[in-house]
Design a protein around this nucleic acid. Sequence first.
DNA 1: ATCAGCATGTAAGGCGTTACATGATTCA
DNA 2: TGAATCATGTAACGCCTTACATGCTGAT
Lengths: 188, 188
Amino acid sequence: MDVEKVGRMAKDRKIDLVILGLLAHENLTGYDIKKRIDGAISFFWKGSFGSIYPALSEMEKQGLVKRKNSNKTGGREKIVYQISKSGKDALKQWLNDEQATNDLKYETLLKTYFGGLEDRSITLRNIEVFEKQVKGNLELLNFYKENLEKVLEEADHVHYYLTVLFGIETYEAYLRWCNKAKKIMKEH
Amino acid sequence: MDVEKVGRMAKDRKIDLVILGLLAHENLTGYDIKKRIDGAISFFWKGSFGSIYPALSEMEKQGLVKRKNSNKTGGREKIVYQISKSGKDALKQWLNDEQATNDLKYETLLKTYFGGLEDRSITLRNIEVFEKQVKGNLELLNFYKENLEKVLEEADHVHYYLTVLFGIETYEAYLRWCNKAKKIMKEH
DNA sequence: ATCAGCATGTAAGGCGTTACATGATTCA
DNA sequence: TGAATCATGTAACGCCTTACATGCTGAT
């Protein structure tokens, strides 16, 4: 039997699910979607305009999202998108699929791994640069956490909270590693 | 003034540096390189044959690597590569560059974030699937750690050790999060 | 007047995966 | 004899980023 052809998504384009997920919560423009992704989501997923706008167009053709209204009141056109029934179904199907790919690319770790070619001070500096970034991000995550704790009863917010907790837990682990690694680099 | 054109690498192709880094330690074939990447490195970087072989060809043209000897003794041709002086220079230049991109894509977190559309049990299951994977990987990392501790004095091995410690630290953090998250999903 | 932010979109091009093609060796 | 492993490489294709193109609004 053939695979259903209506509302079928691109095989490996996860940006579709991100957009669908955001639209399941509220109607948004492409520009708004970009802003949401750049918020707390950016710690575990990224997206650019160059992927968001084409994805929205294609998903509209597939009937996964609908244009709500093209507000042309005054300024530039503004296209608000709304998720459709089949869009929600696609999102649910993805949520129910156990398999998930967690793809990590730490250039910092690569530089640590291959650092033996240079002096220890180089690896040490690369770790310190990483540490600095992590500390900044951790502050931001703690700020998100405090804000979310005030509105935990609202729809979906417990889920957002969990991802922030994930960020904090891993970023604290990063910092512990930085300290260990610096110590080992200095002592050993 | 123009940028130096000899031995210049592709701008964003980090696989070149991975290969160069591995070759700085020992001469290898493309096949061997793949095996090394699939080992402890796979926790923070990945690579396929389809990217390794073309990268080796291009880097040979650029003079970053050299063919050591085409062993045709018996079976299929076997091309052993060796890093060149300019290859080592390129690698060192990269190590000395403070900027590093750590690009994370956790589909598990995406499913957690958007899980509000479905029953709590779905999110719970997705977390449990993640937890299971993490536990398996953590075992493997601990095995790597024990083996490395025996040969810590050998060249470069402290650096490998540090990346394994990173893996252990973060994977333990993942497990702590899994427990917290499961608890919150059940209680809240 | 000018700059940042709002807002949508396209074009070029790079990177990387999957699948395929080919073929030898070793071991059960 | 058949499967797994060794070994190299190409082709198709998809995804995504960067840069560009365009133009309005509001604040300084």
